[in-house]
Design a protein around this nucleic acid. Structure first.
Lengths: 147, 147
DNA sequence: CCCATTTAGTTATCATGATAACTAATGGAG
DNA sequence: CTCCATTAGTTATCATGATAACTAAATGGG
């Protein structure tokens, strides 16, 4: 998250310009504005999921499994690859999803180390119940961007 | 941070389109791309400061004090307002900056609750030593955006 | 002037990200 | 077949964000 509330004023950027020349001040300010805008959107998403006793990461893991075209179960390491988060965090989050019966462990395959996870019925309906608010926030962000 | 590595394919968005209509799929995908891009930039910034035994928040607090035109010391609550982070986190971070002698406490004023903080000489030079890498990353992000 | 309320900042505790080091299963060289 | 290196996932611990509840100082109505 990028926490600077106020973007630098022109007076400030000119004070620091010697550090970033030849990049134009407007470019620097533009990037800062983008970082700030994205951080606020992410914050709103996190608040939305928290209000619904969920988390962005839990949601992303469910959607990643759901959106796969052919497979109906995904391997742990595939999930780790698609969600750009460290393995221990995925382990912990999947554990909580299992405890809530939103995911099911599928121990098929010859390799006894591998773990496959599929959405449960509750998992899928929970996911769908979260879609409207999620896409609403993304839509709002899209609007805010053009304005 | 937004962790989804792969943006949804057209096949995926059409699967979910009923949840976000009438917003156009390209808009949703566009916002997701922006969130992802910003998250990666923030990650690079955090990695940069970590490599330099610093943190993005520590840096932002220093720059906020430095960039104020007239005042050479800022009040705790002013810092909290400008950096969009909770008070306890600011307390903790300022404490670490004091321990490293990068900030100085200025207990002036009649209100004995108030605390004012100013950059020390080391604080200012530390800040300046971090500028080039910081603005380099912002410049890179600006380039990546236009491409 | 006194007590209740407000304001400034801190402490305690939790949530969720990371890295390092671990266990258990696999697989390939000899 | 045996043993060592590799791969899959977990455990332990830390870093840094949050909220709630706290202490101490200021303020204002009676």
């Amino acid at each position: 998250m990028f926490f600077l509330k106020d973007l630098p004023t022109p007076a400030m950027t000119s004070k620091y310009a010697r550090f970033f020349a030849p990049v134009e001040p407007e470019q620097i300010v533009g990037v800062l504005a983008d970082l700030r805008r994205a951080s606020l959107t992410i914050r709103r998403l996190e608040a939305y999921f928290r209000e619904n006793d969920f988390s962005l990461l839990r949601f992303l893991i469910l959607i990643i499994i759901d959106r796969e075209p052919e497979k109906e179960a995904l391997q742990f390491s595939e999930i780790v690859e698609k969600v750009d988060v460290s393995k221990p965090v995925v382990t912990r989050t999947i554990k909580s999803l299992l405890e809530d019966d939103l995911l099911m462990l599928r121990c098929e395959g010859s390799d006894k180390r591998m773990k496959m996870y599929a959405l449960s019925k509750e998992g899928r309906s929970r996911l769908e119940s979260l879609f409207p608010g999620y896409f609403k926030l993304l839509g709002d962000a899209a609007e805010g961007e053009s304005s």
